[in-house]
Design a protein around this nucleic acid. Structure first.
Lengths: 216, 216
DNA sequence: GGCGAGATGGGTAGAACACCCCATGAGTAA
DNA sequence: TTACTCATGGGGTGTTCTACCCATCTCGCC
């Protein structure tokens, strides 16, 4: 009983590498290999794999959107995300899209194979550092309505403060502009960082630029 | 006459994949495999490989700096950069550091092997899209003074420290990675900020992203 | 009415930062 | 030789940040 697998990554070298790596596992059969989301959708239709191993950074369509469409049309197909991104942003969006596994590329090869096997059994494999995020989120919010707010769960005020933070002002300066105490600014900053799993202003700036909140 | 090779990438999955991929080429012998720049420097000293296959995005030290140090201490060792970055910035800096090849991860496996063989023969393999950049640069400027104008009068060491600063590390962490005291890191930071007329780390991050030194 | 979320603030402690002072040694160019 | 840049570090000082603790008030919702 082999697991039929499709590899998706826009880097040919990585794709070929993965193929060889996975061929060691005799219960895995790689039935297809491609580099764009459009090819994947066609291939899933035609090949009906058990598992799709999917990179997020595809050129034509994000891996997240690709996953969403795959799960919508063929819910029985399991998806394992293999990516360099370990932040909350991508992780939760991939889960919402229906992924059964999320493995960072820094993981050990065995962990990847474990994730694929788990996905094929309709189970879920999460890399420890990311599982932790999920547990924390579950404990705090119950996580059932996360997909609705889509703006990372920041409140309007927090989003507003975030803009000022990444512009480079100190808490005191921001407080003056918003007519609130520096402590309140700091409070908002703490909540933002906790929600986004960030731990310094430099990370905050990079996050904001990624999200298009500010221009560099 | 086999080519002795070292693999460097911080992603274990990719590393293992590359190993399998390259084992198909019988004239290549992988004598080492590691994930950090520090390990590479030790390994080159001990193993004396013909070629180092090097990813740019290492956790402790940029691949560019690692390449620079390798070429400085062991000039006979060839370096092939294998990276996701295809922009001008990284490409030229890697060439200046002494790389004999530059292959994007989206390249075909054969191209990677070709690049390694070329490097071992003391030749240079450049991926077509990047070779084009080099030709264009040569035609327009003569390319001999490119390194000096990259960053507004920063010294090489300052440019190097800048990269680490905007990655988010503290002075102590950066000092550890560069084997210098935190005070020296701080000193470089002060000089950088004075030269660029910046006054905080967040401004530094935005500057670096504008210049393409890092990706957000 | 109570309950949770959001916004508001205060305090504390340790770490990190930003900006000064100083110096030594290596290398290079005038 | 002298002068200069570069990289290396030490000290100090005040500010800022990060991460906890605590509280009150308002609002909508069940």
């Amino acid at each position: 009983m082999t697991i039929r697998l499709i590899l998706v990554d826009d880097h040919a070298v990585i794709r070929s590498g993965l193929r060889m790596l996975l061929e060691d596992a005799t219960d895995l059969e790689i039935v297809g290999e491609m580099g764009t989301a459009r090819e994947v959708l066609e291939a899933v239709e035609k090949l009906r794999p058990d598992v799709v191993l999917l990179d997020i950074g595809l050129p034509d369509l994000s891996g997240i959107e690709a996953a969403r469409q795959i799960k919508q049309r063929w819910p029985e197909t399991a998806i394992v995300a293999l990516t360099i991104h370990e932040d909350e942003e991508y992780f939760f969006r991939m889960l919402e899209a229906g992924a059964s596994g999320y493995v960072p590329k820094r993981a050990a090869p065995d962990e990847l194979i474990t994730a694929i096997r788990a996905a094929a059994e309709d189970e879920v494999y999460l890399y420890p550092s990311l599982a932790k995020l999920l547990v924390r989120d579950y404990l705090s919010t119950g996580f059932q309505d996360r997909s609705s707010d889509m703006m990372d769960g920041l409140t309007p005020r927090e989003q507003e403060v975030l803009v000022y933070l990444v512009e480079g002002g100190t808490n005191a300066e921001i407080g003056e502009q918003l007519h609130i105490s520096p402590k309140t600014v700091s409070r908002h900053r703490e909540n933002i960082m906790r929600k986004l799993n960030l731990h310094s202003r430099t990370e905050l700036v990079k996050y904001a630029i990624r999200k298009g909140i500010i221009q560099p």
